[in-house]
Amino acid sequence: MNGSPDRDQRDPCLDESLKEPTDSIIVDIASRVITPFILLIGLYVFFHGHYSPGGGFQGGVLLAAGILLLRLSLGVAVSQAIMPTRMTLRLAAGGVLVFLGTGLAAVFLGGNFLDYHYLPLPGLSPEYLRYYGILLIEVGVTATVMLTLVAIYDELLGC
């Protein structure tokens, strides 16, 4: 529509405009104000997934949306402080390891895969053992979903 005709011919690898901070002060201030609330709602959805709709996946996507809003508005360089690009895939792999470790710990201690009853958490009654077991799983899912989305975004920008 109103895009310049040479935009389509431009080499996509040289298009750095998505990495730079926005020129609009409204977008700048609004994203700075909104982002903490998005992150807080993401954490709420994640921790409240036991009792209400929500859980690891939705909370992870909300947390990723908060980080990606900062990436999109303030520029990639500024938003490195909240989540560095080089750490995203490593921490996502760490989330997978948390999930797998929780499941395999139950296997090695005599139960089935993901059988929280056998988790080696001392001083907890069986129902609280299952409560914290599913919380560990949710931690892994949340970290993996959130950081994989951020890694996909960073990979799309970097050519």
Partner: peptide, 10 residues
């Protein structure tokens, strides 16, 4: 939106 910015808008 990122994919559109990387390719073409039309």
């Amino acid at each position: 939106i990122v994919a559109i910015r990387r390719t073409s808008r039309r």
